[in-house]
Lab assay of single mutants.
Amino acid sequence: MATGGRRGAAAAPLLVAVAALLLGAAGHLYPGEVCPGMDIRNNLTRLHELENCSVIEGHLQILLMFKTRPEDFRDLSFPKLIMITDYLLLFRVYGLESLKDLFPNLTVIRGSRLFFNYALVIFEMVHLKELGLYNLMNITRGSVRIEKNNELCYLATIDWSRILDSVEDNYIVLNKDDNEECGDICPGTAKGKTNCPATVINGQFVERCWTHSHCQKVCPTICKSHGCTAEGLCCHSECLGNCSQPDDPTKCVACRNFYLDGRCVETCPPPYYHFQDWRCVNFSFCQDLHHKCKNSRRQGCHQYVIHNNKCIPECPSGYTMNSSNLLCTPCLGPCPKVCHLLEGEKTIDSVTSAQELRGCTVINGSLIINIRGGNNLAAELEANLGLIEEISGYLKIRRSYALVSLSFFRKLRLIRGETLEIGNYSFYALDNQNLRQLWDWSKHNLTITQGKLFFHYNPKLCLSEIHKMEEVSGTKGRQERNDIALKTNGDQASCENELLKFSYIRTSFDKI
């Protein structure tokens, strides 16, 4: 039985969820670079991206490699990797027998973001014989899940209580170790020597080791999670996991709180800001991140802002960003909400898709409305799209047979046209069989910064309504002859009103 693990408890099935942008060198404390989270699957090609990484700022997932063999891993080693800020997950990587050479110096898994409450997941690794993470000293947050690894031993010899604050939620089941077939031998045991430290858990006094050649490092209890030197002297209180010299914040392997210019500090002093819960960055760093993602459509890219001495992905609820200094300031009234469309555009074809934009005031991208039916549609669209004030790209209304009016965009005031449909149009209306009105132009103002209007096959939309939009939106004169079809717009509506004058002759039985 794995020490510190839980057996036999019912657990939810383990679901495996399925960018080499360097964020800056980590400095003297770390020998390499800070790398983003990685999802490495199918083959070993991307694994080489770990070569210079000291910190993975995010998670590391290595999974679904069915053609790899043990010899493929023999020359692979990433000794610079010290810390993973989120979680480490391995799933069905064939041929991998140990992690001792792959990650010989991995010391800390912070667990800032977890995989279903777990910071370390080893699942269905069919050839893994031992973990071998002999320098792993601290899992700051989260638990361990090690399950269905039929060859995995050296679990009962690990004292997880020396690595985690609590072992109650560890789930370590259905491994070879369960069948008591392992016969784990710690260093020196074969020669009758006791080389590794022994600890007591559940009444068992057991030597602690990761492999037959690597003991588990056990520091004096007084050192807590700070770690200790090879001689057993406690590291500085700002260290986490390990250090090369005692009581020196510049000799830590990793930091308990924050890293700044080669030393570990309790908090980031001005003019620095907390970033990702582990390091200090200056304003320029946060500003660069903001600008890199301002026009990016890459998933996970955030326009970072500053709030409460932190550089964070977005302002919290009730705050909006001051564009001059990136500071989050309290909103006066309802907060603006910028919604970034991942692929640059979004099609609204149902109430469900409209709900995804609920509360958005600025759309960074283009909207395509293609709704053919739905219950209580006008009210639903207004509830979900009615706060949109600005669209950076274009607005396209296409084959939306259920629409009679666009009044559900009740606050839309600006279409920038930074991206144009077919390279020309910022407003595009095609084949809307029941569209009769755009907006009530006596109450609604709309500016279209650039781009043209396109109207074709809107049989109940009168040309007068379209011409009014040209005047109000500032697009009059931009359109070419064929942009607004004269014969297919309003051709099934009563669009022309003329005053009919009647004269009559009164007659009676005795007068003409």
Score class of each variant (00 low, 15 high):
108 V>G: 01
286 C>Y: 08
126 V>G: 09
91 F>Y: 11
136 L>T: 03
288 D>P: 01
58 G>N: 00
199 T>Q: 11
99 L>F: 09
177 D>R: 11
302 H>M: 05
203 G>L: 09
191 K>H: 05
321 M>Q: 13
105 N>Y: 05
266 E>W: 15
310 K>N: 10
320 T>F: 14
224 K>N: 05
263 R>D: 07
227 G>A: 06
36 P>H: 03
175 N>Y: 05
323 S>A: 12
207 E>H: 14
57 E>G: 03
85 T>G: 02
219 C>A: 07
143 S>F: 07
30 Y>P: 09
52 N>G: 10
223 C>Q: 04
308 N>Q: 12
125 M>T: 04
271 P>E: 15
278 W>T: 13
274 H>N: 15
202 N>C: 06
158 I>Y: 07
39 D>L: 06
168 E>Y: 04
87 Y>D: 00
262 G>W: 02
149 N>A: 12
88 L>V: 07
144 V>N: 02
300 G>M: 06
129 K>D: 03
259 Y>C: 14
137 M>V: 11
265 V>L: 09
68 T>M: 13
54 S>V: 13
234 C>V: 01
29 L>N: 12
239 C>I: 00
310 K>H: 05
247 D>E: 03
142 G>Q: 01
109 I>N: 00
88 L>M: 11
102 L>F: 13
255 C>W: 01
168 E>M: 07
95 G>W: 04
265 V>Y: 02
199 T>W: 11
336 P>A: 05
146 I>P: 00
243 C>P: 00
285 F>D: 05
253 V>D: 15
198 A>L: 09
213 S>I: 09
53 C>I: 02
292 K>W: 07
137 M>H: 13
87 Y>N: 01
239 C>K: 00
312 I>F: 01
242 N>T: 09
220 P>T: 11
318 G>P: 03
104 P>E: 01
286 C>S: 04
247 D>S: 02
308 N>S: 05
317 S>N: 04
183 G>E: 14
205 F>V: 13
170 N>M: 08
112 S>L: 15
140 T>V: 11
216 Q>S: 06
249 P>H: 11
52 N>R: 08
90 L>G: 00
64 L>K: 05
75 D>W: 05
80 K>P: 01
80 K>Y: 04
170 N>G: 05
275 F>N: 01
234 C>P: 06
177 D>Q: 03
336 P>D: 08
336 P>Q: 04
306 I>K: 01
225 S>R: 09
314 E>T: 13
259 Y>S: 04
252 C>A: 00
257 N>W: 03
114 L>G: 01
136 L>P: 00
336 P>F: 03
93 V>S: 01
275 F>K: 02
258 F>N: 02
102 L>M: 08
225 S>E: 03
316 P>F: 02
269 P>W: 11
309 N>G: 13
271 P>A: 12
101 D>P: 12
314 E>C: 03
32 G>K: 05
233 L>P: 03
214 H>C: 15
93 V>L: 14
71 E>V: 15
89 L>R: 02
120 L>Y: 01
176 K>R: 06
191 K>G: 13
279 R>E: 02
289 L>C: 04
328 C>Q: 02
37 G>S: 07
121 V>M: 07
80 K>E: 03
320 T>S: 05
151 E>A: 13
280 C>E: 00
118 Y>I: 01
120 L>D: 00
273 Y>W: 10
49 E>L: 09
195 N>R: 09
289 L>K: 15
97 E>T: 07
187 P>N: 14
64 L>S: 00
305 V>C: 08
102 L>C: 02
50 L>H: 02
120 L>W: 02
229 T>H: 03
328 C>K: 03
308 N>V: 11
33 E>R: 14
98 S>Y: 04
134 Y>M: 13
296 S>R: 04
152 L>C: 15
59 H>T: 05
255 C>I: 01
81 L>M: 11
58 G>H: 00
142 G>R: 01
191 K>A: 06
244 S>H: 10
81 L>H: 00
49 E>Y: 07
180 E>A: 09
279 R>F: 13
233 L>R: 14
46 R>S: 14
283 F>P: 09
310 K>G: 14
288 D>Q: 15
66 F>S: 08
297 R>E: 08
79 P>C: 02
52 N>W: 03
159 D>W: 15
59 H>M: 09
95 G>S: 05
300 G>Q: 06
251 K>Y: 14
147 E>V: 12
56 I>V: 06
233 L>C: 01
109 I>W: 00
143 S>R: 07
234 C>H: 01
120 L>Q: 00
319 Y>A: 10
227 G>E: 02
63 L>K: 02
271 P>K: 14
201 I>G: 14
109 I>A: 00
155 L>V: 15
205 F>L: 11
190 A>V: 10
103 F>K: 00
127 H>D: 10
69 R>D: 01
293 C>P: 02
336 P>Y: 07
175 N>K: 14
203 G>V: 07
212 H>G: 06
270 P>G: 09
148 K>V: 06
245 Q>F: 05
169 D>A: 06
108 V>N: 15
226 H>Q: 06
59 H>P: 10
331 C>G: 10
147 E>D: 04
78 F>I: 11
48 H>P: 05
